[in-house]
């Protein structure tokens, strides 16, 4: 339930700079692995990757603050 609440919050967050994404236009395909990119963490600038969350289900939100 907590996860669903966060999901709703995230959806609100992105409504500012929303460019409506249609499922076919995202470039991501069900069944494929998510790319193992290492990027800076917003919190402290240290390297972070989705690999950190292996073993857990993740709801990933790709968004913008503009």
């Amino acid at each position: 339930m907590k996860l669903l609440l966060l999901f709703a919050l995230a959806a609100f967050a992105v409504s500012l700079g929303e460019i409506v994404a249609k499922p076919s236009s995202t470039g991501f395909k069900v069944g494929e692995p998510f790319p193992s990119l290492v990027m800076p963490s917003l919190a402290d600038g240290k390297p972070l990757s989705l690999a950190r969350f292996r073993g857990k289900k993740v709801i990933l939100h790709i968004f913008a603050s503009w």
Partner: peptide, 17 residues
């Protein structure tokens, strides 16, 4: 485009777009 939401399983596999 943004936003995009992905559901990713325990093994890093995309399960829903």
């Amino acid at each position: 485009v943004v936003p995009i939401t992905l559901a990713i399983d325990e093994y890093g596999i995309i399960r829903a777009v």
